[in-house]
Structure formats: structure tokens, C-alpha cells
Design a protein around this nucleic acid. Structure first.
Length: 366
DNA sequence: TAGTCGTGGGC
DNA sequence: TGCCCAAGACT
């Protein structure tokens, strides 16, 4: 692919962006340099995984806690997955935590516990795709590798006035090629971070702050007055809604929690057992059926605990939680990874998703 | 390759 | 409120 990027323009773009970027966001915890002025590749790696599809303000406290709990690749690799998921609890996209954990074990086994600086070795690690590869190579190792994330995609679509659907494969290839052509050999990490910072603070999705932009005069989208309409995305299809039940199944002061299968949504997290209702099914019938299927127990459904509404990426749920008790059978892990009896005082040891945290909060209010 | 995978904030 | 969006990867 030929690029309409002449060297003088490219150098001007990089110079302005770097000059702007040097004053930006030095306070972010994952940007702290060690005594030798370099960035710990492990810390860069963890930050980049956490930042996938997740905002800077959300990641901040998680990052600090995670690094305090798992300060090195070796400590992460040696930890039980349950501990890693507990540290990730509430952050979402839990496959990231499972992959990061597995990747840390690979780094220990195959690379002596040191994050490899080789692109091929890095790219083989679970959870490291093309973006994260470029981010680690450029930010942690100073290699001129390109990145393309939501910020860069938006900035480049505007700077080059790309009106095609940015998610189309051909457009993606063009954007990657532009990112690769732009990244300067002498400061790839600072440049890539500045590009993302620009997208996060100036070239934002709604009503970009062009007057504060260091590359405004280089921006074709701005010159054409179409910056607000870019990038072009395909329409999102509407998300279905489901009614879901969950049971707080009591045995004295204890209640049941079940661990979700590792290969499914929220895999490895613990929950109040239950599941999606069939069309026309009553909530009580739904809960009894789900507990029969998942744990091989017959339960009596009692009072409601709370109702939780929640929107996932591809569907919405109304979660109806009920008190209950076993009327026959002993729990067996049939369609769940595991189960346990716990108490309100002890349940915090288990990593649970936000909806189940809401149920817990309702239980504690009573 | 198109669908799947969380959650919180902004508007 | 409901939708959009976010430092994507995996299958």
C-alpha cells in the first residue's frame, strides 16, 4: 500500500504531538519510571491489559492494588487463579485476567520470568493481540511498533478524513499502515502514548476540542468541517433483554455460591446460582429448574431479595433474586465449576460480578 | 469473520 | 432513561 505521507509532514506531525504530549498525564501510575528512568515491562504489560476497553479512571485503583498484590511476573504466576480473579473483580472482561495469569506462567517457564522483548515471543502470549504487542514493544522496549486502539482509530480517521467504516477490514489495514508510517524511531513510546492521550482528552468522540489540538492545522477532517461525523461506524444492532433468577439458598447462617464455568461469560467468578428464564416460565419455576440443572437440588422459593437491572455489552437483564432452601437432594457441581457454602462474613473471599455484589448489598441491608 | 466478552461514565 | 463509548482479544 502506498502512503500519502511525505516525510516533512510526518516529522511535523510527530514533533507537534511529542511537544504536546510531554506535558500530559505524567501522573498516571503506570507511567512511573524506575530509578534508572526506564519502565518495568511487567507493569506496562499489566496496565495495557487492564486498559483494554476500560477507562483510565476505572483502571487506576485496580492497577495499584494489583501491583501491590502481584509485584512481579513470578508472584502472579505462582498465585491461584482465584486470587487473580478476586483482584480483577468488578473490572470486567475476565478473560483478560485468566489470560494474563496463564501468560505469566509461560513467561516464567519459557523466559526465566522476564517479559520478552521479542515481538514473536510476546505475540504468542495469551491476551496480547496486535494493539497490546505494539504498546509493549514501543512503551516498554523503545521499539518503533505501531498501535491502533479506539483513540488512534478516531484521531487518524479525522486527521486523514477517512469516511469509510473504520471497522471494515480494508479501513483497518489502512489505519494500521498509517500508524506504522507515523511512529517515529527515536521516540515510539512517547509518540504512541501522546497519540492515545490526544484521543482521550482532545480528539474525543463527541464534540472534539479542536481549538486545543496541537495538530489542528494538519487535520484534514477539521479543514473539511467533518470532524464531528468521524469516525464512521456500522450501526449497532439492538440488544435483547432477559429475565434472570438467582437463589440465596440458606442452610442456617450459610448460603450457596457457585462458580461459573471457566470457558463461559464471567468464567471463574462466583455467583448466586440461577439462570435465564424460558419464555412464559414463571420466575419461581425458572429458579427451581436452574438449580435442578446446575446443582441437582430441589428448592423451595421464598421471598424476593431484590431486583437488579444490568446492561452487558450484548444484552440486558433483569435479575430477580429470591431466598430459598433445599427441600431435597445434596448439591453436586453438575453445570457449574464448583460450589461452596459460605456466610455474609466470609463471602468476600469469592470473586463475584457486579450483579451478585448488588444482591449481597441487599442482603446486608436487611 | 462476525459474535462474544463487563462495567462505569457521559450525555 | 437509554444509548454511546472505552488503551481489544479470542474464536
Amino acid at each position: 500500500m502506498t502512503l500519502p505521507l511525505n516525510p516533512a509532514w510526518r516529522d511535523e506531525f510527530a514533533a507537534r504531538l511529542l511537544a504536546w504530549g510531554s506535558g500530559q498525564r505524567g501522573h498516571l501510575p503506570w507511567r512511573a519510571a524506575a530509578d534508572d528512568g526506564r519502565r518495568d515491562p511487567y507493569r506496562v504489560w499489566v496496565a495495557e491489559i487492564m486498559l483494554q476497553q476500560t477507562g483510565v479512571t476505572t483502571v487506576g485503583p485496580y492497577y495499584d492494588r494489583f501491583l501491590a498484590r502481584f509485584p512481579t511476573v513470578a508472584t502472579l504466576a505462582a498465585a491461584p487463579l482465584d486470587d487473580v480473579l478476586k483482584a480483577w473483580e468488578g473490572l470486567g472482561y475476565y478473560a483478560r485476567a485468566r489470560h494474563l495469569h496463564r501468560a505469566a506462567q509461560i513467561v516464567v517457564a519459557e523466559h526465566g520470568g522476564r517479559v520478552p522483548s521479542d515481538a514473536h515471543a510476546l505475540a504468542r502470549l495469551p491476551g496480547i493481540g496486535r494493539y497490546t504487542l505494539g504498546a509493549i514493544l514501543s512503551i516498554a522496549f523503545g521499539q518503533p511498533a505501531p498501535i491502533l486502539d479506539g483513540n488512534v482509530r478516531r484521531v487518524l480517521a479525522r486527521v486523514f478524513a477517512i469516511t469509510d467504516n473504520v471497522r471494515a477490514p480494508a479501513t483497518e489495514r489502512r489505519l494500521w499502515a498509517l500508524s506504522e508510517a507515523l511512529v517515529p524511531a527515536d521516540a515510539p513510546g512517547a509518540f504512541n502514548e501522546a497519540l492515545m492521550d490526544l484521543g482521550a482528552t482532545i480528539c474525543i468522540a463527541a464534540r472534539p476540542r479542536c481549538l486545543a489540538c496541537p495538530v489542528m492545522s494538519l487535520c484534514q477532517g477539521r479543514a473539511m468541517g467533518i470532524q464531528d461525523a468521524l469516525p464512521t461506524r456500522p450501526p449497532r444492532r439492538q440488544t435483547p433483554h432477559y429475565d434472570v433468577t438467582a437463589g440465596v439458598i440458606w442452610r442456617g447462617d450459610e448460603f450457596l455460591v457457585a462458580q461459573r464455568p471457566l470457558d463461559k461469560m464471567l468464567g471463574g467468578l462466583w455467583e448466586f446460582p440461577g439462570g435465564k428464564c424460558d419464555p412464559g416460565e414463571t420466575l419461581a419455576d425458572c429458579l427451581r429448574r436452574e438449580l435442578r440443572e446446575e446443582l441437582a437440588i430441589e428448592v423451595a422459593v421464598g421471598d424476593a431479595v431484590t431486583v437488579v437491572r444490568h446492561a452487558y455489552t450484548h444484552f440486558r437483564i433483569t435479575l430477580h433474586a429470591f431466598h430459598g432452601r433445599i427441600v431435597s437432594g445434596e448439591p453436586r457441581a453438575v453445570e457449574v465449576a464448583a460450589f461452596a457454602w459460605t456466610t455474609l462474613a466470609d463471602v468476600d473471599r469469592y470473586a463475584m460480578a457486579v450483579t451478585d455484589q448488588r444482591i449481597l448489598a441487599a442482603l446486608r441491608r436487611r
